[in-house]
Simulated scan of single mutants.
Amino acid sequence: MAQVTLKDVARAAGVHFTTVSLALRNSPSIPESTRERIRKIADRMGYVANPIYAALTRRRQRSGGVVRPPRLAYLVNRPPELGYRQLPHHPLILKGARRQATALGYELEVLFVDELHYTSEKLAAHLKKEDINGFIIAGFEPGLSGLMLDWSQFSIVKIDSLHREPAVSLVTNDQERILRMVFQKLRGLGYRKIGLAVGRADDACTNRRYTGGWLIEQVRLDPAERVPPLLFPYNPKREDVVQLLRRWGEMHKIDAVISTWNTIDEVLRAAGFSVPDEVAAACLCLGEQDTGVSGAVANLEVVGAQAVSVLAQQIRAGKKGVSQFPTTTLIPGEWRDGNTTPPKHSEQYAEVEA
């Protein structure tokens, strides 16, 4: 069904569409009785104001006619002071989101949700002041600041952040399928004692998709080849990671490690393992700039771009708040050979469809 426009309401009310626009903005230039009649007609017809047009109008009024593009917010809860820019996946997702926002005619503003930058209260005030009616909750991490807003006022999309409210549309890389693809690739290369080493935070914010995919693959193995996953604590120190990795690797006699870290080969070497001669290494979320390490290119720029596209669609449709049936968009990855997973022997592993 076509969306009701200002001109549709104007025809039904027998007035010019500019009169409808003024009436719906409660302009005193239109008599109160006319305003009320037009509002009732608009309500009866199911008219919903175009939020992009409304935001542009307010910006034009405030800036004396100089119009800035409508703005979207990109929210993260790891501030620069805690290493936001040092985590390799954040810049890649943000790069794709910025590019798509520009292509669709939006500005994208990155806002850090924490006590030093934007608390929920300060954020709500900022979004209102800047006429921002849509935002992306981008990779919120467990153990860091949360977010509490009146969700009904905004169009919202999540990237990961599945451990946090609200339940809204999600865009993410397909962690479960990517993990299973990498595992099966290593099996095909001849590795048999393959271990998964990821952070609890990474697993939690993806709703256990990494360990879920891992368990699916583990149940198909001979018990002698099964390796329990190593889950690093929240915000671990490097020396703790190295120690845990060393003990776990030696205990289970691993010959390959799968991790979300694009420096997993360096960490394994720090733990005393020779890579790839003793232990192979594969990463689950390589970027295009990552060379040398084998693993999956997770197409994180595509994740960011798709999140903006879904958000823009919601804004155009006037959809706000929590949906009864939120959508999920899973972005696939693909294997890329590196120098950290040489073939071990010719025995092949029979792959099955995920």
Rank of each mutant, 00 (worst) to 15 (best):
V267R: 01
V267M: 04
V267Q: 03
L268D: 09
L268M: 07
A270Q: 15
A270Y: 02
A270V: 01
A271H: 07
A271V: 00
G272K: 10
G272D: 07
G272R: 07
F273I: 05
S274P: 00
V275G: 05
V275N: 00
P276N: 08
D277Q: 15
V279T: 06
A281M: 11
A281F: 11
A281V: 06
A282S: 07
A282P: 06
C283H: 07
C283L: 00
C283Y: 09
L284N: 05
L284K: 07
L284M: 14
L284H: 04
C285W: 08
C285Y: 04
L286Y: 03
G287S: 13
E288W: 05
D290Y: 02
G292I: 12
V293N: 13
V293S: 03
V293M: 11
G295M: 09
G295N: 02
G295V: 06
V297A: 11
A298T: 06
A298Y: 11
N299D: 04
N299P: 02
L300T: 04
E301Y: 00
V302Q: 10
V302R: 15
G304M: 09
G304R: 03
G304C: 10
A305P: 01
A305R: 04
A305K: 01
Q306M: 14
Q306E: 15
V308T: 11
S309K: 15
S309L: 13
V310C: 02
L311M: 12
L311A: 08
A312L: 06
Q313R: 13
Q313L: 12
Q313W: 00
Q314M: 13
I315L: 15
R316I: 02
R316W: 00
R316A: 13
R316T: 08
A317K: 14
G318D: 04
G318T: 07
K319S: 12
K319G: 00
K319E: 15
K320N: 08
K320I: 10
G321A: 10
Q324A: 13
Q324G: 13
Q324T: 03
Q324D: 14
F325A: 13
P326A: 08
T327A: 14
T329F: 06
L330H: 06
I331Y: 05
I331H: 09
I331M: 12
P332F: 03
P332L: 04
G333Y: 05
G333L: 12
G333W: 08
R336Q: 14
D337C: 01
D337N: 13
D337G: 05
D337Q: 11
G338P: 02
N339Y: 09
N339H: 11
